[in-house]
């Protein structure tokens, strides 16, 4: 089956006016930074390559993306295989990608953690649903401490299927004020409580990928927009619809236009040299 996932299918017909409005909200000189995208293979059958990401980014005007593995069937013990796939995509396009590695906190992760830091990965991705752990699991708390020690940010899946986010994460945030955390999918079900509890912790960012506009409206109405960063979650999201959700929600919440460059890039891009 031929899939027309190109920008045409995503922006034609009834999407044309949506995409036009979305582009009109993005300053013309701004290169958008995508804080959440995947490269590799997932057990659900989805795949994405570095080349596929490059095409999508170029078509939509995205200049840089954080990329990390999917829930890869070949992850085995330490995720080294999928992490290698991300690294090789990064080597192909070093200007486009900010590579994060992924780990399974249940398994022995010290070796792969050290290998990835040594190699130059710029952050860690953790997925509590796929790898079936709670954010206050001692092995996970230890890993957060290691990330703080190595001075790398951690992106946590804090979206669909999550049931506990703020309460198990708060002690870690309080213990490691310098640890940079990205709440993937903006803490979705707990977005309002997360905005309240993490408001005073400037190193916690809320990332918007595939979050419904109404959740983002509440977030933008409750938190400094300087703490919110755009993400796509490709291959689960796409650029036109996720950019629209973020910008339309910010617009409805009355976020002044001067904050748009930060939301679409600066708020997180400043973390990476």
């Amino acid at each position: 089956m031929e899939q027309r996932h190109g920008i045409e299918a995503l922006t034609s017909g009834a999407m044309a006016s949506v995409w036009e409005w979305t582009k009109s909200k993005i300053p013309s000189d701004l290169g958008v930074f995508d804080a959440h995208a995947h490269i590799g293979v997932d057990i659900d059958g989805r795949t994405m390559t570095g080349e596929g990401m490059r095409e999508r980014m170029q078509a939509a005007g995205i200049v840089q993306s954080i990329v990390f593995p999917l829930n890869d069937p070949n992850a085995r013990d330490d995720y080294s295989g999928p992490n290698d796939v991300v690294w090789s995509a990064y080597e192909d396009y070093p200007d486009l990608f900010v590579p994060f590695f992924r780990l399974n906190p249940h398994l022995d992760y010290d070796g792969e953690f050290a290998r990835c830091i040594e190699r130059g990965f710029e952050g860690l991705k953790l997925h509590p649903v796929s790898q079936e752990f709670e954010l206050d699991n001692p092995k996970v708390v230890r890993l957060f401490g290691m990330a703080a020690g190595a001075n790398i940010p951690v992106l946590i899946h804090a979206g669909f299927a999550m049931q506990r986010i703020v309460e198990p994460l708060l002690p870690t945030v309080e213990k490691h004020p310098n640890l940079r955390l990205i709440l993937g999918h903006a803490a979705m079900v707990e977005t309002l409580e997360a905005a309240r509890q993490f408001e005073g912790h400037p190193n916690v960012l809320f990332e918007t990928s595939v979050v419904q506009a109404k959740d983002l409206y509440v977030l933008f109405s409750s938190l400094d927009p300087g703490r919110i960063s755009y993400g796509s979650d490709i291959p689960y999201g796409d650029y036109p619809s996720t950019l629209h959700a973020t910008l339309a929600a910010a617009d409805a919440a009355g976020v002044p236009d001067e904050h748009i460059p930060g939301i679409l890039s600066g708020n997180i891009r400043r973390w990476f040299g």
Binding site: L10, A14, M15, P240, S241
Partner: peptide, 18 residues
Amino acid sequence: DFPPAIGRMRVAQDLTSL
């Protein structure tokens, strides 16, 4: 063709909720 299908539903729902 899933991506253009789900993208349109997502936007339809976002326009409605806003």
